[in-house]
């Protein structure tokens, strides 16, 4: 019993350390970006696309970080950008279907399945469900 608890705490601290190493730099980077014209520029470029999900243009950064790195990088960015709870929920749903694509696809590849189909399924769900929940959320 004690051994399991110790092991659990150790894993928890390891995970916290790992996510801290990701969240802190991402958060710092986005905070600095917020004080430059770059973030506004990104927001403007992506606002038509992100409008599909009823999200502000800046949210594109969150999706890119989550899909290329991992959920914790996305979380660092979510916290650094000002978003409403509904927008955070939409992003969370989209990211929960599709995240860490490089790493997780490498894992799935070991199972000898069609990797393209797996990625299409995940990204398709993220986009499809993201559009529905974004529109419904804005309507409520």
């Amino acid at each position: 019993m004690l051994e399991s608890i110790k092991e659990g705490i150790k894993k928890g601290i390891e995970t916290t350390w790992m996510l801290g190493k990701i969240i802190i730099p991402v958060y710092l980077f986005i905070t600095i970006l917020k004080h430059t014209p770059v973030l506004n520029y990104i927001a403007k470029v992506f606002s038509p696309l992100m409008g599909l999900f009823k999200l502000p243009g800046e949210a594109a950064i969150v999706l890119v970080l989550g899909n290329s790195l991992n959920l914790y990088a996305a979380i660092g960015a979510i916290k650094a950008i000002d978003l409403t709870p509904m927008e955070i929920t939409t992003l969370a749903v989209m990211l929960s279907f599709s995240h860490s694509l490089f790493m997780e696809t490498a894992v799935v590849k070991q199972l000898k399945v069609n990797v393209i189909k797996v990625i299409l399924l995940r990204v398709g769900l993220a986009v499809g469900v993201g559009m529905v929940i974004g529109q419904v959320g804005a309507w409520i």
């Binding site: 608890i5 928890g12 969240i23 802190i24 710092l28 905070t31 916290k79 650094a80």
Partner: peptide, 21 residues
């Protein structure tokens, strides 16, 4: 940036450590 990011790490640590146990 530093205060905000440390706060985020803390909120998540409070969840992740008990969960891992």
């Amino acid at each position: 940036g530093i205060i905000g990011s440390l706060k985020s790490v803390y909120t998540i640590a409070v969840i992740v450590i008990p969960l891992m146990v």
